[in-house]
Structures are given as structure tokens and as C-alpha cells.
Design a protein around this nucleic acid. Structure first.
Lengths: 253, 253
DNA sequence: CGTTCCCTTGACACCGATCAACTCTGGTGG
DNA sequence: CCACCAGAGTTGATCGGTGTCAAGGGAACG
């Protein structure tokens, strides 16, 4: 199930590899960062890694599987302000704030690396390029969140769903999680609903519309994009906001 | 009108003063930052400072007045993913990305300071505490945007509006823009609608509800919060996400 | 083989959008 | 100082998108 969700090539170094391609870091910087990524651990699906309000001493780097940032309101309403894919730093902002204003949980079985907050900040202080890379990560994270605000606030449910499917395609492409025109989409409708600010029932309806319009097929958590230009047009998807400049990694083993 | 909207004490140094209170910077760091804040300029209301897609060579720091980040969809739909108040850095993320994925415009007459992107990054490279302060700014910006996602995605129009009024109160308090229980709210209903992802007509109705419930009064762009606990309760407003640790500045001259 | 989620579909309710008319306000020029 | 006017706010009627509730079917897992 893990390997089905994330067919990655070099498990542990998705993150370092991404930095190599997108940030301006020398090999010694990369080695230093890799040195902080000590212990890797495996976690089952639907487990809390960080609770809202905690202040964990580490930053989590996702290596395999899917995770999400989670925000809860007092009465149980829930939203996932970020879906996290292999190579993503899950909670970089909280390394610089007193407490996490979002929780962090796995959505599939996952493997993670942890980086000590203090060690990371010390490394950044000693190596300006590392500090720049972290800042770049934060800035592009912010860009993604702004795009999400735009989608939730001003796109229709159908447009927003199409946009999410396009975004996931582009992000997975960058870490080698795409095969052909499709990818594994391990989320339930409820999880999709909570990332889009909608309800599971409505997700089901909108997926039926996308299927009926011949834009996608989705079964057994395998998504295939049948008409990529059409889907992108419907979503007004412009991948520039993802700031993925490097060439995508090759697919398969 | 400008001074009515932003009754500030030490115009040029709102920003430096905020860093002094919230970040761990030595006086020499602060002086170095202040040194970059050379030329200040005044801009009329409703002027573009940065167009979506541009890559301006400077970062804008708002000194007086209100501004906003603006995102536009192809068909004219608009959302303001951030309202910017005196002391805010308007577009720090774009200093680290190739292009701005949001525009930047003034909402009232405003005065701004510009900082050369390159000079800022150089300073951060030479002074780790400055780099940390920038990272802190980015992280708290991200926290605000996440809260916005929560509000747009999961709060009702009434709750969201109440939340915005609470947030503005807290943020203005931090820069000395609050008098008693009220503050100048120079936005039109349409601008409020575009920050909440709603329509101007609905803003009008929700403001009437808040007035009718005795929570606020609003006339001539002067907002008074009549029942702060009540408004915060309705909004489930918990100011922790703003990460304003320092003591608020005193009010008046 | 059974049970538990998860997905699907329908009927209906409701929140917020849209359209339209009217009022109020503040700024401008005579 | 007054008359005018454009933009902003208010209110009502109606529409539509999304939520809610409920029931049934199917797939995955023990």
C-alpha cells in the first residue's frame, strides 16, 4: 500500500534531491543537511504526528506516503490547509514560532525523517545558503497556501477539485510519483472534502461530473487524467505558483 | 484621511520597532535593517504597486495606510489573500521566488519604504539573526494565511466577518492603531467582500446582523467593538496565530 | 464470511449570489 | 452656501450551488 501510493526511487533522499534541483546549494551544504536527517521512522495511516498547539522539538520531513496539515474548529469542523507529499517539509513554520497552529497527521502509511529544530536553525546560521533554501521553502509554501485561498474563496467546487487534481499531478511529477497520465490518489472523499472546504457528498458528485465530461477516470484510488488540457482549462491551472523550476525526475524504476 | 486611518507614532520605524519587539535582533542588526529602508514614498489610494506576474527588484514595507495582496482569476474574480497594515512587509515571499503570484495595491493613501531585494538577501547572508527574523516574518505570514484558509473554508460568513474584525483589532493594537475599543476601518464593502471571499451585498447584511446583535457599531468608516468577548466568541477568535508576543504599544500621541 | 467503512444517489433545505431599485454620503463645481 | 453627482451602502425578491439527511450498494479488511 505504501509502495503503491508512492513509487519513489531513492526513498531517503527525496528531500535532499529536491533541494539539489530547486535551491542554490553546494554539495557540502547538501551533505550537511543530509547529516541532520538521521532517524527515519514508519507510521501507520491516520496517526497524529503533531497536535494543534504542540511545540515539537523537531521538524518533520515526509519521505514516503501522504500526510496533511490539519486545522480544527471547536465544534469539530476540519480543514486540511496542506496536503504533504514525499519530499515536503511538513511543519517548517513551527520551527520559528512558539506553537503549531495546525496539527499534522498521516493520511497513508508513511515514513518520515525528523530534524532537530535547534540543529536546523544552527545549521542555517552557519551556512547562509541553507538559510536561503529554508526561506525558499517557506516562500513557496506560502505561495501554495495563497493559491488555496484563491481556490476556496473564488473557484466553484468543480473548478477547485479540478485544480487540486492538476496540482497533485504537477507536484507528484516533481518527485516521481506519476505514471503515464495518472497517479495514485489514496485519499477518501472526506479527506478531499476537507482539503477543498466542501463535503464528501459533494466531492462524489463533482467527481462524477469530471468523469462524465471525460476529463478523468478514478477507481480504486487510481486517478487517470484523460484530458489534461481540458482539466487545466476548467481549473485555470497555471503551475507557476508551485515554483518547480527543475526538470522533473524520470518515471518508473 | 491617511492620519485618520493610521494614527502612528514614529512613522518610519513602525517596521523596525516591530522587529525589535518580536524578533531576537541586536541593535546593530536593527540599525543595519533601518539602513536599507532608504527612500520612502507616498502613494494614492487604489494604485498598483506590483502587478501579478511581475518580479520587482524591491520588497515593499508599508509605513502608513492600508494595502492588500490581490489575486485575480482570468474572468475578473478577485480575492485579497492579505490585508496589509503599517509595519507589514508586503511581499517578502516574492524576494525569494521568480515572480509574484499576487499583485499588490494600496487601499488608502499610503506611504511605503522599499528595500532592494538583493541588498536584503545579502544582509541576511551576513547576519544570521536578520535571516532568522525574515524567516520569522514569513512563518507568521504563513500562519495568518492558514487561518484565512480555515475561515474561508469552514466558517460561516458571519463568523468569518467577526473573525476579521477581531484580527484587525489585534493587529492594529500591535502598531498603535486602536483607540478605545475602536479603530478606523477604511475599507469598502466590496474590499471586505474580496478579503472574505463573499459579495458586497452579503457583507452589508452580515454587518447589519452584527449591529443588530449589539456586537459592533460601524459608521463613517469608524468601527467600534461594543462587545469584544461576544464578538470573539462568535468568531472563535484565538489570537495566538498572529504570534504577537510583545506588549502592545501605547495609544495616542 | 462478515463487518465496517466508503461511495453513490435522491430529496430537500439553506446560505450566500445575483439582480434591481432606492437611499445616503461625501466631494465638486457653480 | 447650495446643487449636483458618482460612488457606496441598504434592502427586497429570487435563484442557484452546496449542505444535510437518509438509504442502499459495494469494496476492503479482519
Amino acid at each position: 500500500m505504501v509502495s503503491a501510493a508512492t513509487p519513489l526511487l531513492l526513498p531517503v533522499h527525496v528531500f535532499v534531491d529536491r533541494l539539489r534541483r530547486h535551491a542554490r546549494l553546494g554539495e557540502s551544504d547538501l551533505t550537511a543537511i543530509a547529516g541532520l536527517l538521521g532517524d527515519t521512522r514508519s507510521v501507520a495511516a491516520d496517526r497524529w504526528l503533531v497536535r494543534q498547539g504542540d511545540s515539537p522539538p523537531v521538524v518533520h520531513v515526509l519521505i514516503e506516503g501522504w500526510a496533511a496539515r490539519v486545522r480544527l474548529l471547536a465544534d469539530g469542523r476540519r480543514i486540511l490547509p496542506a496536503l504533504l507529499l514525499p519530499g515536503d517539509v511538513c511543519d517548517l513554520p513551527t520551527a520559528y514560532l512558539r506553537q503549531a497552529d495546525h496539527g499534522l497527521m498521516t493520511l497513508t502509511p508513511a515514513t518520515l525523517a525528523c530534524v532537530d529544530r535547534r540543529a536546523l536553525r544552527d545549521l542555517a546560521a552557519r551556512r547562509p545558503p541553507v538559510a536561503e533554501a529554508l526561506t525558499w521553502l517557506l516562500a513557496s509554501d506560502q505561495a501554495r497556501t495563497s493559491e488555496l485561498v484563491t481556490s476556496i474563496g473564488r473557484r466553484s467546487a468543480l473548478e477547485h477539485l479540478a485544480h487540486l487534481l492538476c496540482e497533485l499531478h504537477a507536484r507528484l511529477l516533481d518527485v516521481g510519483g506519476v505514471e503515464g497520465n495518472g497517479y495514485a490518489l489514496p485519499l477518501t472523499h472526506e479527506e478531499l472534502a476537507d482539503t477543498l472546504g466542501l463535503t464528501a457528498v459533494h466531492i462524489s458528485r463533482m467527481l462524477q461530473r469530471l468523469r462524465g465530461d471525460g476529463l478523468i477516470s478514478l477507481a480504486a484510488h487510481k486517478l487517470v487524467i484523460l484530458d489534461r488540457p481540458g482539466l487545466a482549462r476548467l481549473a485555470t491551472f497555471h503551475p507557476a505558483y508551485l515554483h518547480l523550476r527543475g526538470t522533473p525526475r524520470p518515471v518508473g524504476i
